[in-house]
């Protein structure tokens, strides 16, 4: 499967989790794709941690505004009913448990729901931005990522090796191979991508997966 197809498959599955009235924070990159896939008939308000509720799609050419960007510093637009606030208020709503759902990418996730996505010692320092606050404060955290690294190495581990972004924070993992729920017993595989076996998903995963008694095919 091509990278872009994987990413769209993951984003479409995450989008099925959206419910009417949700306030949602979408991370930079793959999670942003979810914004174009909101199911018809429901109203969802997107939060951007740089101080906006009601983020709209990218603007039409000629309507870009340097004063109107998302947390990825991309130009965006307003939807009717949007509002602006300062960064302290923005993170008060995040830490205070007012965000129904946050979606972010990760470098590593482990069996305890720990997540690492902000630095690789000696190689890459980007900074954590708002990720540590989001994983600590969002009511429900979805990790949306490719199942393995570019070299085919596992990203879903027994224990994270990289410096952590947050402890026991992840509720769901969505990859091109399946849909997983974090439980006190470990990672429960609830849905599996068409054409894959449980054993194939397990082989691409370092953590020991639990097989849901209701394991079903992941809807596209």
């Amino acid at each position: 499967m091509k990278d872009q197809d994987k990413r769209m498959l993951i984003a479409r599955r995450v989008a099925r989790e959206l419910r009417d009235g949700y306030y949602v924070n979408l991370g930079i990159g793959l999670p942003t794709l979810v914004s174009n896939l909101v199911p018809p008939g429901i109203e969802v308000v997107l939060q951007s941690e740089n101080g906006m509720l009601g983020v709209g799609p990218y603007p039409y050419e000629g309507e870009e505004d340097a004063d109107l960007i998302n947390a990825g510093k991309e130009t965006v637009s307003e939807i009717p009913g949007c509002c602006y606030f300062n960064s302290a208020d923005s993170f008060a709503m995040i830490r205070g448990g007012h965000i129904d759902m946050a979606v972010m990418g990760a470098m590593e996730v482990d069996e305890r729901g720990n997540i690492a996505n902000w630095m690789v010692p000696g190689k890459l320092i980007k900074g954590m931005g708002g990720a540590m606050d989001l994983v600590a404060g969002a009511r429900c955290l979805y990790v949306a990522m490719e199942h393995t690294t570019h070299d085919g190495g596992p990203k879903i581990l027994k224990q994270c090796r990289l410096p952590l972004t947050g402890l026991a924070a992840v509720n769901f993992i969505v990859t091109e191979m399946g849909f997983m729920r974090l439980t006190p017993q470990g990672i429960l595989l609830e849905e599996i991508a068409p054409g894959l076996s449980f054993e194939q998903v397990q082989a691409a995963t370092e953590a020991t997966l639990l097989r849901s008694p209701h394991l079903r095919e992941m809807p596209a």
Partner: peptide
């Protein structure tokens, strides 16, 4: 962390010398 950063500034302006936050627990921070 960005929320801690914002709150540290807010606290500085509001005369609150320190506060507790969940962000960063268990991390190098």
């Amino acid at each position: 962390p960005q929320g801690t950063f914002a709150e540290r500034i807010r606290a500085g302006g509001a005369g609150i010398p320190a506060f507790f936050t969940p962000a960063g627990v268990g991390t190098p921070i």
